[in-house]
Design a binder for these strands. Structure first.
Length: 472
RNA sequence: GGCCCCAUCGUCUAGUGGCCUAGGACGCCGGCCUCUCACGCCGGAAACACGGGUUCGAUCCCCGUUGGGGUCACCA
């Protein structure tokens, strides 16, 4: 098949949030289109009016926007295209490739059960197949599948998959109310939207021969298919709610960087040699169908976390500022997107696996009065440290320079005068500055905090020690 | 159950007949660095499901077994 431009699509049914598996399918289609300089179309498959909701549609938009997946066409809504489906269904009836069926559902249901019980394939028995029925109330439309031969699915990822046509039955393409069934709607949409590359989960493999038959009956070229393996939970079963957070936006809310999510989801099932870390642009540049794996992958939150940390470390401070603001607000931190924030982020970057962690770690930078952790104060803000702490504050106050070299010199002087090693004085200073025993490096923090904050916090610690000494 | 797909360390994977005493990453263990915590660096344990072929030679090709997954709706 000759094709000038690749057209892919992502067709979620809006019956819930966008979950990890769906997101990966969207990403694969989007990346392939971008990589090939093609087009990517978004289509909402909402023919099931009972289960489709506006909230789900919005949730899907929200997730895609966060992931940075943009589409060139659409969104199309199947619910607005019923006349197009109707037209194609009529064509199939006219050509003799489909027929009306009036078999009562109850009888069919019983047949199915009996077949399953006796180990046979539950198939429609073809009662109405040759009756040439006219339309009547309650009739469905069935596709007339071939009774013999094979239908071959040529898959870009798996090669040829052969199905015996005897495995296919006369599936329903239009319900009794005239609305189209999934397989019909998908094929008609993909034809009219000129989709030529279909990348989807391998749970669709068994639908593919039916769809191929439909393409042929409609006299259209069959597109390229690529069935990607599913994403599994830790117990190797299909990802579901009991596997924990599955929605894409849940990870946004937990402080993940969208690029990390993108990277992780793509790498789960696709590879480029030993490379693990990819930027968004690298993905577009390197992604292809050849290196998509064939076996299902287990979703591993720990690896996602590690990758997130790596993306945070690699990100620019400017980029991080925009991502981190909501999390700061959430923690009640009134940060402005200024240079101070960039400094804060710089020191927290290598120690934050998520934006939530980063916001937690940033608390002390924005506190007016440091609240000491009880144990930390008891252990490190001892009377013996009063003099050196005071000397430190005074020396810093008296210097005009406020850079790392100057601070180091001041510390050396204090260390010499008090006969304390750096280690003995660093922890108390850390507690004075942050209230905690764990933080970024002393000097880097001081430089971010600025001279006046450093002095006041040091003095506050001295006062605290004085009080504690008096109380003894 | 029928049909279909899949099968390398716990997990994600590299590997396309000899380069494999099987490489990388996450996690795990040990160490170094060090002002705490991280980052970083060094090292370690850890896999070709099994059985037959084909071949001078199989992780890689074929068959079978086993195991896992998917699918069999007037859902998508």
């Amino acid at each position: 098949m000759s094709k000038s431009i690749i057209v892919t699509r992502f067709p979620p049914s809006p019956t819930g949030y966008l979950h990890l598996g769906g997101a990966r399918t969207a990403i694969f289609n989007w990346l392939y289109a971008r990589h090939m300089n093609g087009r990517f179309i978004l289509r909402l498959e909402d023919t099931d009016m009972q289960r489709s909701t506006k909230e789900s549609v919005d949730a899907i938009f929200e997730a895609m926007e966060w992931l940075g997946i943009d589409w060139d066409e659409g969104p199309y809504y199947q619910s607005k295209r019923f006349d197009i489906y109707k037209d194609h269904i009529d064509r199939l009836i006219t050509s003799g490739d489909a027929y009306y069926c009036t078999c009562p559902p109850e009888r069919l249901e019983k047949m199915r059960k009996d077949a399953m019980a006796s180990g046979g394939k539950p198939k429609y028995d073809g009662t109405c197949r040759e009756k040439n029925l006219k339309w009547q109330e309650g009739a469905v439309v069935r596709f007339k599948s071939p009774l013999s031969g094979t239908t071959v699915v040529t898959d870009k990822i798996r090669g040829d998959i052969v199905f015996a046509n005897t495995e296919l039955d006369d599936f329903i393409i239009a319900r009794s109310d005239g609305t189209p069934m999934y397989n019909l709607a998908v094929v008609v949409d993909d034809i009219t939207m000129k989709i030529n590359t279909i990348i989807r989960g391998d749970d669709h493999i068994s639908n593919t021969p039916k769809q191929i038959l439909l393409y042929r009956a409609l006299g259209c070229d069959v597109p390229d298919f690529g069935h990607v393996p599913m994403v599994l939970g830790h117990d190797k079963s299909r990802l579901s709610k009991r596997h924990g957070a599955m929605s894409v936006t849940a990870y946004r809310d937990m402080g993940y960087h969208p690029d990390a999510m993108l990277n992780y989801l793509v790498r789960l099932g696709w590879s480029h040699g030993d490379q693990e870390f990819f930027t968004r642009n690298e993905l577009i540049e390197k992604f292809n169908l050849e290196h998509i794996g064939r076996s299902a992958g287990v979703f591993n939150p720990e690896k996602l976390l590690a990758l997130n940390a790596e993306h945070i470390r690699a990100a620019s401070n400017e980029d991080l500022v925009s991502h981190v603001m909501p999390f700061f607000k959430e923690k009640g931190i009134n940060a402005e997107p200024d240079e101070y924030l960039q400094g804060v982020i710089e020191t927290l970057k290598p120690r934050s696996k998520t934006f939530v962690e980063m916001a937690d770690g940033a608390q002390f930078y924005y506190q007016g009065n440091i609240i000491y952790d009880e144990k930390a104060a008891a252990k490190f803000l001892k009377p013996a440290l009063m003099a050196p702490m005071k000397q430190l504050a005074e020396a810093i106050d008296q210097t005009d320079e406020f850079d790392e070299k100057t601070l180091e010199d001041i510390f050396k002087q204090v260390m010499a005068d008090s006969d304390l090693k750096f280690g003995k004085i660093a922890q108390p200073v850390r507690v004075a500055l942050t209230g905690k025993t764990v933080s970024p490096g002393i000097f880097e923090m001081m430089l971010v905090l600025g001279k006046s904050k450093v002095i006041s916090r040091l003095n506050a610690a001295v006062q605290f020690m004085e009080k504690a000494a008096a109380a003894d």
